[in-house]
Nucleic acid binder design. Structure first.
Length: 111
DNA sequence: GTGGTGACGTATA
DNA sequence: GTATACGCCACCA
């Protein structure tokens, strides 16, 4: 399994995020068994640039829908634009209707 | 091997 | 409800 590494664990889940949806670090962390290690999730996404297939890190935000990792895309607005490209509205670096667009990785992986 | 850091989340005052 | 402190654990020096 290529998911033996912690990073790929995160990548695998993030890539499961459907288009036009978003999720939180905590949800991903719990899905991979990290639970309170939500910080490691974002850390992994920061270096997702060397992962393949590419990881839609722009679909991952904090638990309030805030685009905290926007700076990891090279531009402070790139993350928001990528989301808008998929139909996700973003205001003030914050996802609109986050609760509605929220996607639970465990709800799919768990079957 | 030890110390510091971090795209977060939870608990406490 | 707002503000502060802690924990969590993998990566880097």
């Amino acid at each position: 399994m290529n998911s033996n590494n912690f990073y790929e664990r995160v990548y695998d889940i993030v890539r499961q995020i459907p288009e036009g949806r978003v999720t939180s670090y905590g949800a991903i962390a719990r899905a991979l068994g990290a639970g309170g290690s939500s910080r490691m999730v974002g850390y992994a996404l920061q270096v997702c640039g060397g992962a393949y297939p590419p990881v839609p890190a722009h679909r991952v935000v904090n638990r309030v829908g805030l685009l905290t990792g926007k700076r990891a895309f090279g531009s402070p607005t790139m993350m928001a634009q990528l989301l808008e490209n998929e139909g996700v509205s973003v205001t003030d670096d914050q996802v609109v209707d986050f609760d509605r667009l929220f996607w639970d990785p465990g709800g799919v992986l768990g079957g």
